[in-house]
Simulated scan of single mutants.
Amino acid sequence: MPDDDWLAARFEENRDRLRAVAYRMLGSQQEAEDAVQESWLRLSRSDPQSIDNLTGWLTTVVGRICLDVLRVRRSKPEQSVGEHSPALTDHDVPDPELEAMQADSVGFALLVVLETLTPAERLAFVLHDMFAVPYDDIAPIVGRSPAAARQLASRARRRVQGPPEIPAATAARQREIVSAFLAAARGGDFEALLELLDPGVVLRADETVSARGAAALVRGAAAVAENFSGRAKAAKLALVDGVAGAVWAHHGELQVVLAFTVTDGRITSIELLGDADYLREVEVSMLEG
């Protein structure tokens, strides 16, 4: 098969996925088709031999095209959602494919919520939550680190789904556990730390924190307790994206976020996050001075 025909055939294999990505990003069937066509033009001008993963490459290209469209659209706030997606305002949907898309949780109400997101938030949420694209692949599209891309998707998810309904008792219990953990760490109380940690607890540090000397990965209650015992003296209790955690700041500048996962009354994971992009995006509210 001639190279051009082979490339066109491979593109057609990906067309439905690309159209679905673009539609969820843009909310307009016509704009989605335009984005897909532009991706084909860019592919036809590229060297296919240099593309290891064609599906991933095309998804990235469509994502960037849609991101540009959303940024232009955002600069013209007088436009309404209905102007972007007129088909969604009709009672009759003549296009079976579009009707199927709407049935697949892409209705007008969702698009209205998506319109409230920034272009980068919308892209991160759509690609990760709807198409399982890894944050490592999303990061270069939005020009952020993987940690910051994850934060974009997390913020978008909260806006789309609404604030999580965490029972007051559960939230209070997490705050109590994290506070007790910090106190035990500062006081070097190894046994108290063990009581608070799940036997299979995992401690992870991102690349920024690891570069400062922290272990990238520590497993097990004893090892994690040893890691924190007598330390964390400068860490302060805080709400991290609405959940009890801790932060370390230097001269008033946020340096590291400690994100905790608590399950059945014990800490099952701790993340040390110091990526600059992540720190700019994370929402922190201090709970102690």
Results as ranks from 00 to 15, higher is better:
3 D>Y: 02
4 D>N: 04
10 R>F: 00
12 E>K: 13
13 E>D: 07
20 A>R: 08
25 M>W: 01
28 S>K: 00
44 S>W: 08
45 R>A: 11
46 S>G: 11
49 Q>A: 14
58 L>W: 02
65 I>L: 13
66 C>I: 07
73 R>L: 10
73 R>W: 02
75 S>H: 00
78 E>K: 00
78 E>A: 13
79 Q>L: 15
82 G>W: 09
90 D>E: 14
98 L>P: 11
104 D>T: 10
106 V>K: 03
108 F>S: 08
111 L>A: 02
127 L>Y: 05
127 L>E: 04
136 D>H: 05
145 S>K: 09
148 A>P: 15
149 A>Q: 04
150 R>P: 09
151 Q>E: 15
159 R>H: 08
162 G>W: 07
169 A>G: 00
175 R>P: 05
182 L>T: 04
183 A>R: 10
183 A>C: 02
185 A>F: 10
195 E>A: 15
196 L>E: 03
197 L>K: 03
204 R>Q: 07
206 D>T: 07
210 S>A: 02
211 A>Q: 12
215 A>S: 08
216 A>T: 05
217 L>C: 07
217 L>A: 04
219 R>Q: 14
224 V>D: 02
225 A>L: 10
225 A>M: 02
226 E>R: 14
229 S>L: 06
232 A>P: 01
241 D>I: 08
244 A>Y: 05
252 G>T: 12
259 A>F: 15
260 F>L: 14
262 V>M: 00
263 T>R: 04
265 G>Q: 01
267 I>H: 02
268 T>M: 08
268 T>Q: 06
269 S>H: 00
271 E>M: 11
281 E>A: 14
282 V>G: 09
283 E>V: 15
285 S>K: 13
286 M>K: 08
288 E>M: 00
